[in-house]
Computed example of a mutant assay.
Amino acid sequence: MSYKIVVDSCCDLPEEYRKDPRFQIVPLILQVGPYEIIDDETFDQKDFLAKVAASDDSARSACPSPELFMRAYETDADDVYVVTLSSKLSGSYNSALLGKSLYHEEHGPKNIHIVDSLSACCGEAQIALKAMELADTGMPFDEVVEKLEAYRDGMNTYFVLDSLETLRKNGRLTGMKAIVATTLNIKPVCCAVKGEVAQRSQGIGIRKALIKMTEIVAQEIIDPVEKTLMITHVNCYERAAVVKDIIMKKVPFKKAIIVDAAGVATTYAGDGGIVVTC
């Protein structure tokens, strides 16, 4: 059975898959002051970060329309697997669901399954790549769906950002019981809990927070030899490489991948942000 994997543009796929015909990326729209930027292959991170730094307004995003998702489902592939941003952080998941309804109304039955990643960026990529791995075995659609949902439920997402301001101003910190004092240079170590942002720990300064995050990853991982460590970075490859090396010395992951943040992750994680999934 042929298949297609549809993701929204918060999914930070490794570069070699971004033009792979098995994948299609449905873009979000990014907004910074008077600028509207499509989060597609034309996204210029350096220019975007400069616009954010020069703007008094917080950057934000708008989810894709249901029609964009519907058009992505219009494929000759028998099975379509869709991975979106956490429904607790974006309307992308609901838009993908509406797109599925529109598709069925216009075209009739088709195997389409939409996964709420309960994560973002490299977390979405982990699920999308797992969908590819499972589908490539030739297993039936329903079995892929079952295993994919179980994989999502066993995945952990952690992150450390230089600033939580963009998340806060856009109402994405509803799961946080408190925001630590930035005046003391205290950086929270955050995680995803049922798709919402929660604080897991903290460190004084970005370096100590990142080290604390690596310790948490090592403590909480289950069956690492069967898993991939994936790290999204926003304009800080060297920082991501250090985090990867520290974790890999602690934990025997099957492999580790560092990916550049696309537009949505750049918007919310901000310059210097690090996201880890496993």
Rank of each mutant, 00 (worst) to 15 (best):
E133W: 02
A192P: 10
P252V: 06
S86W: 03
S117K: 03
S119I: 01
I29L: 14
R22A: 06
E15P: 00
M176K: 08
A240Y: 01
T84W: 11
I127Y: 14
S2D: 15
T228V: 12
E105M: 11
S201A: 14
T84C: 11
I231P: 02
A150C: 06
D40K: 04
T267E: 00
V83Q: 06
V251I: 09
P27I: 11
A265E: 00
V189W: 11
T232G: 02
G175D: 08
Y73S: 10
T228L: 03
I114E: 07
S163H: 02
H113C: 09
I221P: 06
S58K: 07
S55V: 02
F43P: 08
L129E: 05
K187T: 04
T137C: 13
K4G: 11
E133M: 03
D245S: 14
N156V: 07
V7S: 04
D223S: 15
V264I: 15
K244R: 11
R239D: 08
G99K: 10
E220H: 12
E143C: 06
K208Q: 09
S117D: 05
D223G: 12
R168L: 06
E36N: 14
I25V: 14
Y158D: 09
G108I: 01
P34I: 09
F69R: 12
I38F: 07
G270I: 00
E41Q: 03
D12M: 04
V6T: 10
M213H: 06
V82M: 09
D79R: 13
L134N: 10
E67V: 06
I257V: 15
K177W: 07
V259A: 04
V32H: 04
R60F: 08
A120S: 13
D20M: 01
T137P: 12
G263L: 01
E143Y: 09
D20N: 10
T232Q: 01
D40H: 03
V115F: 14
A261H: 01
N235V: 00
G195D: 08
G203D: 07
K147Y: 06
S90H: 05
F253D: 12
G91R: 05
A120K: 02
V225F: 09
M1Y: 13
C122S: 12
Q219E: 15
A198V: 08
L184R: 12
D40W: 07
S9H: 11
L129V: 02
D142C: 03
H107K: 12
Q24P: 00
P224H: 13
C278K: 10
I211Y: 06
A62T: 14
I204G: 03
V6N: 10
L161W: 01
V160S: 02
Y151F: 15
V193G: 06
V197G: 09
G203M: 04
S55E: 04
I246K: 05
L164F: 10
K110S: 10
G203Q: 04
K100Y: 00
G175V: 12
K130A: 03
V32M: 00
C190H: 12
T267S: 02
K51V: 00
K187G: 03
E133F: 01
A62D: 10
K194F: 05
L85E: 05
I274M: 06
L164M: 14
K194S: 13
L102C: 00
L98M: 15
K212A: 12
A256K: 02
S201C: 03
Y3E: 11
E196F: 04
Y73M: 07
I114Y: 13
Y73T: 05
Y103A: 05
G270S: 02
L129D: 09
D79P: 04
K4C: 10
V7Y: 08
V52W: 00
